[in-house]
């Protein structure tokens, strides 16, 4: 038993204080220092023609090659973001779109019938306006 002045600390108090500190640190780690902050995407969803959508985690860097109707489309996942890096199509809208970083954002290569979109359980937005 620990006494400071007239205040007595019992073992149970020490335990509670310890648990409270752990809880506080844990909350900081989740909401401040985690790579997955709110609205940040966790999953890349790839829809290829009428196939069921494929899902990839954004936490692992990788390149996905899809052979579409008019040629290959290359999709890159890097540091929690995703983009088209190459497309066989002429317009290159999908490549021009650049990085998808926010959950809800999407882009597509229409001639190749490939669309990619970012998803997150804690998504900030239900849709992104003004994207192609």
């Amino acid at each position: 038993m620990l006494t400071i002045g007239k205040v007595i600390f019992k073992p149970a108090d020490i335990l509670i204080l310890f648990a409270a500190s752990i809880l506080t640190l844990w909350l900081y780690s989740i909401f401040w220092f985690s790579a997955n902050q709110q609205g940040e995407a966790e999953i890349l969803r790839v829809q290829f023609a009428d196939n069921p959508p494929l899902e990839y985690t954004l936490s692992e860097d990788r390149t996905i090659v899809l052979a579409g109707k008019i040629g290959d489309s290359l999709i890159e996942i890097k540091q929690g973001k995703a983009r088209f890096i190459h497309s066989a199509c002429r317009n290159q809208f999908c490549v021009f779109h650049g990085w998808l970083t926010v959950a809800g954002d999407s882009t597509a290569c229409l001639p190749n019938r490939i669309s990619i979109s970012l998803k997150s359980a804690l998504s900030d937005y239900d849709a992104i306006a003004g994207s192609q």
Binding site: I8, K10, D13, I16
Partner: peptide, 14 residues
């Protein structure tokens, strides 16, 4: 063994 006011207060406050 039950906590003193201090332990209870921290629980209550959180």
């Amino acid at each position: 063994h039950q906590p003193s006011a201090l332990g209870y207060a921290v629980i209550a406050s959180i």
